[in-house]
């Protein structure tokens, strides 16, 4: 029975001793030890984090480079394509222009020829008419005496003229 009855004196001394130990150790041991451990752990953690962030940054940089390179490549490609297009367009335009110019010239030439032809025809007709009148005059002058001859002449001449 005595063994399981807490003794008054020992309880009092244990309370005093324990509280003393708790306060002293808390101030002079646990705080510095835990503080040092935590500080070191934080240091390791932050070192790891910074290494990780450096790695990420490196990766980002690499990705950036890649991206810029790709962009440049794409731009060059686009520029080349543009140039090619422009060239083709220019050629096509020139061709069209030339074609239309040529067509226009041909048309002009045709209209000129036509009008020339018309003028020539008119001239010819005029000439034929004046020639006919001249001939008619000469015939008239020559053959005024002979009425039959006159008529005959006119008739033959007219039929000749018809042939033209």
């Amino acid at each position: 029975m005595e063994l399981v009855t807490p003794g008054f004196g020992l309880v009092v001394w244990t309370i005093i001793t324990f509280l003393f130990l708790l306060f002293i150790l808390r101030k002079f041991a646990w705080k510095p030890i835990l503080g040092a451990v935590e500080e070191r752990e934080d240091g390791i953690k932050s070192a790891l984090a910074s290494a990780e962030s450096a790695r990420k940054e490196m990766q980002n940089l690499k990705a950036d480079n890649e991206r810029i390179l790709n962009e440049a490549r794409a731009e060059r490609e686009a520029m080349l394509k543009d140039a090619r297009d422009i060239k083709a367009k220019m050629i096509a335009d020139a061709k069209d222009e030339a074609q239309s110019q040529a067509n226009k010239m041909i048309e002009q030439a045709q209209t000129a020829i036509e009008s020339e032809k018309k003028a020539a025809m008119a001239e010819l007709r005029n000439q034929v008419a004046s020639l006919s009148i001249d001939i008619a005059e000469k015939v008239v002058r020559q053959e005024l005496s002979n009425k039959d001859k006159q008529l005959q002449l006119v008739e033959s001449m007219l039929s000749d003229a018809k042939l033209n």
Partner: peptide, 23 residues
């Protein structure tokens, strides 16, 4: 027991305060 408890407290303080100081 009280005496031994104090001896143990002394040893504890010696160990841990020394350890804390070494940091």
């Amino acid at each position: 027991n009280v005496f031994m408890m104090w001896v143990s407290v002394f040893v504890l303080l010696l160990i841990f305060v020394t350890a804390a100081r070494s940091y």
